[in-house]
Amino acid sequence: MRKVCKKKGIQLVSLASMFLVFGFTILIVVSALAASGADYPAKPVLFYCLSTPGSGFDTTTRAIVNALTKEKLVKVPMPIENASNATQALALSVTRYKGDPYMVSVQSISGMMRYATGATPYTHKDFTPLAGLVSTYYGVAVRMDSPYKTIGDLVKDLKEKPEKTPICGGGSDDRPFYGAMFMKAGLDITKVVYVAYSGGAETSMAIMEGSSKAAINSVDEQMPLIEGKKIRLLAVSSAKRYTNPILKDVPTLKESGIDLEWANMRYAFAGPEYPDYAKKYWLDIFAKMVKTPTWKQTLTRYNWDDSFQVEGLNDVLDKKQAVVTEVITKLGMAKKQ
């Protein structure tokens, strides 16, 4: 309106110093992120992670980018973008990234859950699944001094006094599994008291602290405390026992008399109408990646199972979606028609 204070000198100095800081930042980042062009990936490929940093998807996404960077398989930068709102992000990956060759993402059972409960209208059929990459298995954990020796002991208590035997799991994504498991064990799953937490660390804490009697979560997320002998596993959901020396004595569910195998496969996908050249490129890259020492090392460190799969991936996903929907319907959580 009226007059402004004019202090050009100070402004210039401050502006100049801001740019100095800024320039220094550029220097450092550029020194770390060296980029060069190639044929198809002519610009950075976005790894769109449908979950918060630190989550299972995020860890997988970062492990892939790490392996691709370290083994120099992909020459362009691969920025990772996290979307904490998974439902919205799933919709975006179908709509915004339709036909976009520069987006790759990772998905697993979480998306199927969202479809089954009606949170999202999209399934794997609405985008382009590329390749199955890793599988994780569930482990039923109890604390070290728990009276339960086998999964049968737990099932017995759940049958006799379900209200005294709360079990916990890592959020609603783990519901299909516990539902399927206890259905197979002959329990009325609507009687089981299930306390939802977010993630394996929290469920481990809940059983160590004693408020929950057993925890159902990914084996890999529970590993730190299994190795530290604070919690132990009653059973794992894989088809074969783990070869890891710490886990080799843990029986599978089948061995414990529950006829169920359950793998959570994390697979890479891209938007719908993905160009063929890009699809070919990534299938080729992933096929190379899974053979690299970095990737093999990553699998061991995270206790993931290699489940590289391109052919028949759609069938696997179809079947899993059917199972998930069935259990969710049984639990009364399914989309209301």
């Binding site: 940093p53 630190g54 989550s55 970062r62 993630g199 929290e202 090392q297």
Partner: peptide, 21 residues
């Protein structure tokens, strides 16, 4: 000491720690 992340930032750190062996 427990491998338990208290928030998302430390969960990210945990993932990175494991990745680096």
């Amino acid at each position: 000491t427990l491998g338990i992340p208290g928030n998302a930032s430390t969960a990210l750190l945990l993932g990175a720690f494991i990745m680096y062996g």
